[in-house]
Design a protein around this nucleic acid. Structure first.
Length: 886
RNA sequence: UGGCUCGUAGCUCAGCUGGUUAGAGCGCUACCUUGACAUGGUAGAGGUCGCAGAUUCGAAUUCUGUCGAGCCAACCA
């Protein structure tokens, strides 16, 4: 391979130090201008489509985002360099509870369905009006906003938040195609989500039912199984005596005495001899005097409590099971707001009592109270009635909470929409197996969750800022809502808001009237929309050609704690809609742990904001830290690693300056040492490429960095200095000129390869250097091809062993100098070298460079069979005088 | 209680399908301004690979058990 003559850069024209803040701002603007990262819809190139996670827009990006998104960006940049047509969109997950909560606090407002709409209402952030302290002292209540006003303010804040997010993302150098931006609440997403609903409705995979559902009393909405988490909280067993009809009594143990009025049955294990005699009879609840059946159930643990327990509607999920199996009556006493609702005991109604007056009197004390207050009052009543046989026994037990809630979830009977999933568990597991999981073991988590799924997917939420369920209900002449015959919006109407839009054939004035209609006020579970991210980005039914090009997507990057939600629901949706997997690969990133290896979370207060570290170390340094983490492995947050990244880019910067300052006449790479080094570099390039292909980019970085540092800067560049550096005025022989050209072209060639190898990880520094010298070849390092063996075609094969031996001898001589505590620059008059004969043979090829670099004038080389291949012994060193300074 | 990960130098981690004396970086120690870089360079100390068995000529690597940490789920009357 012939190289043209190059003129060395004047070091004075290159920056003395790396000013990363300026560089990063300049280059990211440049990239946008050059449209380096745009997806080409018409290109025949192979598509690499990324199903980017839309971050929840709720304040600030945290270091976990920086971590996992950068891993994705590294992949995207690599694939682009491999010539793929990379589709890398960004979405904003801005609907749902977290946003509502943030909006409530930010403006100090709450949504009140009955509040009148105020046109042009534009509230300022509450903290710009009064301080936190003032707000608390004056106890100013939140302003009630109509649904419409509330949603307007949600939009207003999310738009602002998204700007801030985008700024950090750009600074981090994420090569997102910003033309592909969407928000889960925008018209496009609402349309797709509602189309999804229509499709599922048409396929009869949807149903609505009035049934016990998980309910959060704070947010007053239904929640899904996937959104629950266990929390260990204190509770107490209360032993309460029940009389048996026809004589006798027993004592049940319950942690929820406040539900006594909701008692619908008693159960014990069929083999439990203590209680067998009561099975089939009726018990009478104390205080309220309600007759309830006593039945046997295998599910009862005789060891627990007293071995016999009361079934209420509903204390927990097992109660639901017994209620169904035994066809027990429904006696719901907890209201949607988490307070004891009004009920009436009488002889024959749904709360039949043998002593209605006493029951009503007792219940009057509970009505309107919260669950906690009611429990206290109930215990007092039980004590007074002498049916609480023991003092409450404190225990600590796990209770289900909505993950974002502050009080345990209740089970209430409400009308909700569900997607049928339980009948598809087998298929969903099968389709999960068709996806390649990185790392593989994460598939087990998906399978585990799917196997254990207990209830269908409840998709309706009683919230405001979300995608509307596109249905209306007829109201009959008597004013009754006909839930069983919903009017589903037609495709052409989407997106619709049934709360303001009118169904076909009706007019607005009929809303809420007999013979009229009413709009569904519920919105979708946010996962209903999020599970469509591939379809949102591909435009699915709206643009089938585009969808076909992009779907199934190539990869989904995501965190492991949302395998059961986001990954699961996305797989479910793709299966339901198109009997397809949504993506070919799913890459699970680990968590960022704090330095004490605890998970970072807002509640623990150990969250680190990334902005500070980007400012201090630069985006490339932060990217380096994330680049070292493998998929699925948790990583401790460690600013020290960023410092090492910082050191690496500084080294790249300085080594580049060194290489680029050298000039040479046209020529070829001929010297054995140069060829030997390039042979090793070729091997590295092939390895790095292989690691990338296997989703092991961390490995690629690690090997590249190691090689760059030990072989390139510490060894090779030192070894060729003698040839690249020319004393001013020194006339070179043609032989020397050739040797010089060889070194200059080899180092330049190697530098280019290194820039490309590092480009996905540290895009700024590598591109900065690229633009100093190599723009004739490509406008940016990011528009070049990733190194492969093909790059080395035309360069004669070198002997990698020769390079290894050169390094070994260099190290052995250095060691002597270190032991003698002399400067590395100290000349050596003569020394003795002993090495394996084979090694000596290789050494002959490169000894000139090694002796030049170590300033060795004369060496006596001896073969020694007993030494290992790379074992080199240096002895009898005679030093010359110190180099003359100046 | 079940499933899945992890346990290697003071710290953060590599060690892929078992094979010479177990690696890197940080930190530590000593030395060196060498013309790209002191945000540098050269060298050094530091590990019975959680523990106990088994398989094997050979185990950090495979298997079994065990201890510890974390996650996911079950239980949660």
């Amino acid at each position: 391979m012939k190289f043209n003559a190059v003129t060395g850069k004047d070091l004075q024209t290159l920056p003395k130090t790396l000013e990363f803040a300026e560089m990063e701002a300049r280059l990211s603007a440049q990239w946008a201008k050059e449209k380096l990262y745009e997806f080409d819809e018409n290109s025949p190139k192979e598509v690499f489509a990324i199903d980017t996670p839309p971050p929840t827009v709720s304040g600030s990006l945290h270091v976990g985002h920086i971590f996992s998104y950068t891993q994705t960006d590294i992949q995207a940049r690599y694939q682009r360099m491999k010539g793929k047509n990379v589709f890398y969109p960004m979405g904003w997950d801005d609907n749902g509870l977290p946003t509502e909560r943030r909006v409530q606090n930010y403006f100090h407002i709450r949504c009140e369905a009955t509040a009148p709409y105020e046109p042009e209402l534009n509230l300022p952030p509450i903290l710009s009006v009064m301080s936190d302290k003032e707000l608390q002292e004056k106890k100013i209540p939140q302003k009630n906003l109509s649904r419409k006003n509330f949603i307007e303010h949600c939009h207003k804040l999310t738009v602002e938040d998204e700007k801030v997010f985008k700024q950090i993302m750009t600074r981090m150098g994420w090569s997102v195609d910003w033309r592909m931006e969407y928000a889960t609440i925008d018209d496009h997403s609402r349309k797709i989500a509602q189309l999804s609903f229509l499709d599922l409705h048409q396929k009869q995979e949807l149903y609505q039912v009035e049934a016990p559902t998980l309910w959060d009393t704070d947010f007053q909405t239904a929640v899904a199984q996937a959104e629950l988490e266990d929390r260990e909280i204190p509770g107490a067993f209360h032993d309460i005596r029940f009389e048996v009809e026809g004589g006798g009594s027993f004592v049940i143990a319950t942690t929820r005495p406040e539900l006594l009025a909701a008692c619908v049955g008693i159960t014990a294990h069929p083999d439990d001899v203590r209680y067998q005699k009561w099975i089939g009879k009726y018990a009478v609840s104390p205080i309220f005097g309600v007759r309830v059946p006593i039945f046997a159930s295998e599910l009862v643990n005789p060891e627990k409590g007293t071995g016999i327990l009361m079934v209420c509607t509903f204390g927990d999920q097992t109660d639901v099971l017994w209620w169904r199996e035994q066809k027990l009556p429904l006696r719901q006493i907890v209201g949607r707001d988490g307070r004891m609702q009004a009920i009436v005991f009488d002889a024959t109604g749904s709360f039949p009592s043998i002593q209605p007056d006493a029951a009503n009197q007792a219940y009057a004390a509970l009505q309107g109270k919260t669950i906690k207050q009611a429990q206290k009052i109930m215990v007092e009543q039980l004590l007074a009635a002498a049916v609480l046989v023991n003092p409450p026994k404190p225990i600590s037990h796990a209770v289900k909470f909505y993950e974002k809630g502050d009080r345990p979830v209740e089970i209430l009977t409400t009308r909700q929409w569900f997607v049928r999933l339980l009948d598809k568990k087998e298929k969903l597991i099968e389709y999960g197996k068709k996806i390649k999981w990185h790392p593989e073991f994460m598939e087990a988590r998906y399978r585990n969750w799917t196997e254990n799924l207990g209830i269908d997917w409840c998709i309706s939420r009683q919230r405001f800022f979300g995608v509307s369920i596109p249905v209306w209900y007829r109201i009959d002449a008597q004013g009754r809502i006909q839930h069983d015959q919903p009017i589903v919006a037609g495709k052409e109407l989407l997106p619709v808001d049934p709360m303001s839009d009118v169904p076909p054939g009706y007019v607005e004035s009929q809303r809420g009237k007999p013979n009229g209609f009413i709009g569904e006020s519920d919105v979708f579970d946010t996962w209903f929309t999020s599970s469509l991210t591939p379809q949102l980005a591909s435009h699915w039914e709206l643009n089938p050609a585009r969808h076909k090009k992009l779907f199934p997507m190539t990869m989904r990057p995501q965190a492991h704690e949302i395998i059961r939600t986001w990954a699961f629901y996305t797989i479910a949706k793709s299966y339901l809609h198109e009997v397809s997997i949504p993506w070919k690969n799913i890459a699970i990133s680990g968590w960022v742990l704090d330095p004490d290896r605890k998970k970072m979370s807002k509640s623990k207060g150990n969250v680190v904001t990334p902005a500070q570290f980007i400012e201090e170390q630069g985006a490339d340094a932060v990217r380096y830290w994330t680049g070292l983490a493998r998929y699925g492995v948790d990583t401790a947050f460690d600013p020290n690693i960023m410092k090492i990244g910082r050191r690496l880019v500084t080294k790249i910067f300085n080594a580049s300056k060194f290489v680029l300052q050298n000039s040479a006449a046209a020529g070829e790479i001929t010297e054995p040492l140069d060829l030997a080094f390039l042979a090793k570099l070729k091997h590295l390039a092939v390895q790095a490429d292989r690691h990338f292909e296997q989703f092991e980019s961390a490995q690629a970085l690690q090997e590249t960095e190691k090689f760059f540092w030990s072989h390139f800067t510490d060894s090779y560049l030192e070894l060729v200095k003698g040839r690249t550096w020319t004393a001013p005025g020194a006339g070179l022989t043609s032989e020397q000129e050739k040797a010089k050209s060889s070194a200059v072209f080899a180092t330049r060639f190697a530098l280019k390869e290194f820039l490309k190898l590092f480009a996905p990880f540290v895009p700024y520094t590598t591109d900065e250097v690229w633009r100093w010298a190599f723009q004739e070849e490509a406008v940016s390092v990011h528009s070049t091809a990733f190194p492969t063996a093909a790059d080395f075609e035309g360069i004669p094969d070198g002997n990698p062993e020769a390079f290894d031996v050169a390094m070994a001898v260099q190290a052995a001589i250095n060691q002597q100098k270190t032991l003698a505590k002399v400067s590395i620059a100290r000349p050596i008059v003569k020394l003795k070298i002993k090495a394996h004969p084979e090694s000596l043979k290789w050494f002959e090829l490169v000894q000139k460079d090694v002796f030049a670099a170590t300033k060795t004038e004369k060496a006596d080389c001896n073969a020694n069979e007993s030494l290992e291949r790379l074992q080199v012994e240096v002895s009898d060193v005679e030093y010359g005088p110190d180099a003359v300074k100046g």
